[in-house]
Design a protein around this nucleic acid. Structure first.
Length: 943
RNA sequence: GCCGCGGUGGCGGAAUUGGCAGACGCGUUGGACUUAAAAUCCAAUAGUAGCAAUACUGUGAGAGUUCGAUUCUCUCCCGCGGCACCA
């Protein structure tokens, strides 16, 4: 590649100057501020990958832009340096994690600096340094004081390969997110942070935050709120009550059995009273052998066992119902017991079908809209409420279906109605009822009869047994029936019928649809009949003496780890006093250097006598130190607070510094941290707020997630595929500015996009074009047309406007495109533009390509850095063109364009337009029906 | 299954209170310069038909609203991400 400028010399020169002049150092805490933050990296041995510069460039542009705008900007960088990879490397290679991680940090810092980011390195943090983790331990103690950190025996996730427990957030599809080993369940005593105490606030504050919809949805899903009720079922002849959680109290009249999870606390005593203890025991044993993944496998057929001889009483209708144990009920959600409503819950339906349990329908689907029907009531002869029957007749021989519908007569039962209607309408006499399809409520307007209909229909599938017929008079109106059709036709022709028959057709072909799990109108529920589900819920909860209840899926955060390379948990176990927190003055609890850190399942720290054996800080008795370390996510859940006051020796941070700098105004990082790091950080901030230590509710006002950069082959970059792009090589060959520009130009920040090695050249050419234009004496050889400085002034102001707006909206790709358009305007035209125009252009370029902009700025005779300048303002008058091109359409098709003065009136414009030859041609002498004029944009002539 | 995001040339992408689809860049083709190549510069570049002017088609599919739809509404298909026996 020919080089018109020596990027290496320029970049080295300015990186040195900037470092020496401390130009990126954060100002004292006063004036208007912006806190622009990147997710700090884990300093892996592989060094930076191209995803890092993507988000770092974006934040760097923002930081530089806001400095130009006169803001005091905090833009820090640091390293999340505790964690497993360094430890695993240490185990393999025998190098202490600390040594390896420091090497990696040196490399990371070099790489980051080579890209010319404007970080304030004086505030760098390193989570594995005692100066930092002292305060991580302090944070732990603060949470401990509040009861937000606690130790508890609980079923936890255990990774047999990493030899440690994991938080729920670190398990993906039952596998360890780090090593993809199947995670086991173990009952262990572990440390937790009480995130659930903030579940509600974590959920409802999401609405006010400026996060991408994907991030919000992910967090909402993870928190998993559902509102319902807890209701007690009495066990017959026993003093026992079983509490169930349900979100559908409106279906309780349809609860035909109860189900307990195998681990439910009442199972132990109940099974002894059952008649089939052995069967029950073997079922429980079998269930507990399965791991979580097997238990929750949706494809698996449901299993269960009845507690024979035991009956519960449905509190709604006093019916005696059976009690079952089944592992489709989860132990750790709700109360670990459910009321089963097979008619309205697919899982209960499946279970009931398998074990032949009663299915009672208490909610019907509502078709059509009662309100709409009411609105078109005017002029309707009568309101007819007549309940009907729909039979779907199936002819096995021809594999065809036919719909027959009709109403009750007098007090007929279902079968009599069906029989009569089928004979009357079709003449067939030999059939049997095969399946009940459920009930629906239909609301519609029958045009032919001019009546509004509001009915309940029951549907049946009826098998034709032979072709025998009797002659009928076919009195019924055949137009209302679709005669024999095959399956596809039945679905197609009837799915738009809208009167409710279509719903039954669906239920014929889709077995699952026969279990209606939606909300509707209540039936078979005593005095609640006719209410909607929504209306019935509260009333029924009251009626059965239940309690309204909210459930969340999110669990407390398991923070202890049985590994070496983490912050030690500052707790001491005294023989006399029990759990004793390490006094703050004794912090940090230093990680011992001389430990065999091989993982064995026991915490490696337990093997260090000097670490382990201590005396109680309270009474001096013999004691032992907690030997677990903290999850690295604890370190990263507060680092953004430390940046505000990084050098503080006396405290984690001063309230004053946090008050000024926090919350973070813009945080950019990967979406993979949606439920781990980001929820943890939000939790920690809320906990510290409630302790009165800080005053903010949320750590991050605005979060954007950079999209993954894929390899050229469209796959993820991975050593395995050998398709990884090394940023160092790109910087060396094309330069840091080109690299920055390319990554910003690839596409929208948040989109996933593939790398294209050839595409980089376009950005390099663009920078060269600028360099040549500014440094040469502007003898443009290929002058195509004359252009005035006033024209260029306009072009510049348009560009400033576009780039300013695009930066504020993080649309860097179109900002660069706008600058390219400006250069295309300038270059190749004579005469050259004024120095003033060039200088302003360099300023708006400088956040993107800081080295080149600074170099050219200096070459224009400025001794002071370009980054000391102010952002150029644009003049609205110069941005708007006086002449506009108006598109002329005839009947919606573009036929001509015309250049006119801006804001030309229709009166002035119309004759001009109508006299255009093309317009005359396409109108072809027809009269003009309509002349639509959108000012400054378009004319559409309808002829 | 539920929730969220998306589907536009050969490729990355642009255009949204509904108003000229394909900006900008890559690639490709042709030309200039050169002994030659690279680099650079100029031109063309959605598809189909045509020598051409031009015409028709075209933003995942189908329908709808509208003078006008990539943009709004409905139905469906496909891709990505999250949750998932959560009662």
């Amino acid at each position: 590649m020919t080089t018109f400028f020596n990027h290496q010399a320029i970049e080295q020169k300015w990186q040195r100057v900037w470092a020496d002049s401390a130009i990126n150092q954060t100002g004292p805490a006063k004036g208007k501020k912006k806190y622009i933050l990147d997710m700090f990296p884990y300093p892996s041995a592989d060094g930076l990958h191209v995803g890092h510069p993507e988000s770092y460039t974006a934040t760097d542009i923002m930081a530089r832009y806001f400095r130009f705008k006169g803001f005091n900007v905090l833009h820090p960088m640091g390293f999340d340096s505790f964690g497993l990879p360094a430890e695993n490397y240490a185990i393999k290679q025998g190098v202490h994690p600390q040594i390896k991680i420091q090497e990696n940090i040196v490399n990371f810092r070099r790489q980051i600096k080579s890209l010319g980011f404007s970080y304030d390195w004086s505030r760098e943090v390193d989570t594995s340094s005692p100066e930092y983790y002292k305060w991580t331990q302090w944070l732990f103690l603060k949470l401990y004081e509040q009861g937000l950190a606690y130790k508890r025996l609980a079923p936890v996730n255990w990774c047999p390969s990493c030899q440690t427990v994991l938080a729920n957030e670190q398990v993906e599809n039952g596998k360890c997110e780090r090593c993809e080993t199947d995670v086991m369940q173990k009952n262990l005593e572990q440390w937790f942070f009480k995130v659930t105490a903030y579940a509600e606030e974590l959920l409802n504050k999401i609405d006010d935050l400026d996060y991408a919809e994907a991030l919000k949805a992910t967090q909402r899903n993870w928190i998993g709120k559902s509102e319902g009720a807890e209701i007690e079922f009495v066990i017959k002849n026993e003093e026992l009550r079983i509490k169930v959680f349900t979100t559908r109290p409106d279906t309780i009249f349809g609860a035909t059995y109860l189900v307990l999870a195998p681990e439910h606390e009442l199972v132990k005593s109940l099974k002894l009273k059952a008649e089939n203890l052995n069967e029950i025991d073997s079922y429980i044993k079998a269930a507990q052998k399965k791991n979580k993944l097997e238990r929750t496998d949706l494809a698996k057929e449901k299993t269960g066992v009845e507690l024979q001889g035991i009956k519960a009483i449905n509190p709604a209708n006093q019916a005696e119902i059976t009690v079952w144990i089944a592992d489709y009920v989860l132990t750790d959600y709700g109360t670990g017991a459910i009321m089963a409503v097979p008619a309205h819950d697919e899982r209960d339906w499946e279970f009931a079908k398998k074990f032949n349990l009663p299915i009672k329908e208490v909610v019907v689907k509502v078709m059509g809209n009662r309100k709409l029907v009411a609105e078109c009531r005017d002029g309707v002869a009568a309101v007819l409420v007549k309940n009907g029957k729909v039979a779907i007749l199936y002819n096995k021989k021809t594999d065809e279906y036919r719909i027959i519908s009709g109403g009750y007569e007098a007090d007929e039962d279902d079968f009599t109605t069906l029989k009569r209607e089928i004979v009357e309408e079709s003449g067939y006499i030999d059939f049997e009822i095969k399946d009940y399809l459920g009930q629906i409520e239909a609301n519609f307007f029958a045009k032919g009869k001019n009546v509004e209909r509001h009915k309940f229909h029951k549907g049946y599938l009826v098998n034709l047994l032979s072709d025998r017929t009797v002659s009928t008079s076919f009195e019924e109106d055949e137009d209302f029936n679709v005669l024999w059709v095959n399956m596809e036709e039945a679905i197609e022709k009837l799915s738009t019928a809208g009167s409710g028959e279509d719903e039954f057709v669906k239920r014929v072909f889709d077995f699952k649809q026969r279990c209606f799990a939606g909300e509707g109108t209540i039936l078979n529920s005593g005095k609640f009949d006719g209410l909607s589900s929504a209306q019935a819920k509260d009333k029924i909860i009251k009626f059965v003496g239940g309690q309204k209840q909210v459930q969340y899926k999110i669990r407390d955060w398991l923070v202890s780890r049985q590994r070496y390379w983490g912050a030690p948990i500052p707790i001491i176990y005294c023989v006399k006093c029990g759990q004793v927190p390490v006094p703050e003055k004794d912090l940090p609890v230093l990680l011992p250097q001389d430990v065999d850190f091989k993982p064995t399942g026991e915490s490696p720290l337990a093997r260090s006598q000097s670490f382990h054996q201590v005396s109680c800080p309270k009474c001096g008795s013999p004691a032992r130190r907690e030997s677990d370390t903290m999850d690295t996510f604890v370190c990263s859940s507060w680092y953004f607070l430390r940046y505000a006051d990084a050098g503080n020796q006396q405290a984690a941070f001063s309230p004053k510094a946090v008050k000024y700098w926090l919350p973070v105004d813009l945080y950019i990082g990967g979406l993979e941290h949606a439920v781990g790091h980001l929820i943890y950080s939000r939790f920690i901030v809320k906990a510290l707020r409630d302790m009165g230590i800080i005053k903010i509710d949320e750590p991050f006002l605005k979060i954007r997630n950079q999209g993954i950069i894929l390899a050229e082959d469209g796959r993820k970059m991975s050593k395995r595929w050998g398709n990884v792009i090394n940023p160092d090589e790109v910087v060396e060959e094309y330069g840091a500015d080109t690299m920055r520009m390319y990554e910003m130009f690839m596409g929208p920040l948040e989109d996933m996009k593939p790398w294209n090695q050839k595409g980089i050249i376009g950005l390099r050419r663009f920078l060269e074009k600028i360099y040549k234009y500014v440094t040469s004496d502007k003898e443009i050889t290929n002058a195509q047309s004359q252009i005035t400085n006033a024209d260029m002034e306009r072009s510049l102001h348009k560009t400033i406007k576009k780039v300013t707006e695009d930066i504020e909206n993080l649309r860097f790709n179109t900002a660069i495109s706008a600058m390219m358009i400006f250069m295309n305007d300038v270059a190749g035209h004579e005469p050259a533009v004024s120095q003033d125009i060039l200088e302003k252009f360099l300023i708006i370029l400088s956040p993107f390509a800081p080295h080149l902009a600074e170099e050219l700025w200096q070459s224009l005779g400025h001794p002071e850095s370009i980054f000391k300048q102010r952002w150029p303002a644009y003049d609205d008058k110069l941005v708007i063109d006086e002449e506009v091109t108006i598109a002329i359409q005839i009947n919606g098709k573009l036929r001509e364009t015309i250049k006119v003065k801006r804001w030309l009136s229709e009166k002035e414009l119309r004759p001009k337009v109508e006299s255009l030859p093309n317009v005359k041609k396409f109108i072809g002498g027809r009269p003009i029906k309509k002349f639509i004029y959108i000012e400054n944009k378009l004319v559409n002539i309808v002829a």
